[in-house]
Amino acid sequence: MATIDANKPDLPAAGAKSHPLYWKNRGFAHHFRNADEQFDACKLGMWLFLTTEVLLFAGIFCAYAIFRMLYPDAWAAGSHHLDWRFGGLNTIVLLFSSWTVASGVRAAQMGNNAALIRNLVITLICAGLFVFIKLYFEYIPKLSAGKAPGTFFSYPYAHDPHEPLWWSVYYIGTGIHALHVLIGAGLLSWVLVRAIRYEAYGPTEYTMVETSALYWHLVDLVWIFLFPLLYLIH
């Protein structure tokens, strides 16, 4: 990348500490005036991106609200098929992971690489747990019972003709959210790999940790809205 330069102090050290990605070796791109400006720019960029994500989910929430208004009975019936305990468990898992990822950012700022790695690993386990619960206890049993979206709906004991629509909204909403969980987990894994290999993050360089964590909080936030709307309100 020809135009991305760095201030490169000479650091004769072994292993990760000599690597250009080691946090003390890191500079900033040439078109910024200083590292702070670069950090601010990256954070602003991430916030803007999160805005777009919120608006993406806004479409689904909007569809939910409109069909709920049109077919309240179908929504009540559909909601009764969801077990709030699995949803609640997943909520706890995600909230906990939000806490660990925030602790990870703190660890990076303090220069505690071991704590950063530990927190990221716990966060990733939580992400896996969330997807596992979603798939194994919710999607698979429901789909095999015929509670599928749209024309695939074949559940024989449906109360309301518009229940297929409920399942469409349910699968699209939670499905796109689960996709975001996976994307967030991918981002955090990348951070984790660089933290392990290069000790890439420390007090002067934690942009990537901070922005990935912001993304992860968004994933959490969306679930905080999905959970009561789908599981708790009948």
Binding site: A63, I66, F67, L70, Y71, A74, P149, G150, T151, F152, P161, H162, P164, L165, S168, V169, Y171, I172
Partner: peptide
Amino acid sequence: FERLFKVGIFDPGLGGD
């Protein structure tokens, strides 16, 4: 999704709008 899986959100036949 509507074209691939006929989810019905926009399909008046399934109650969509």
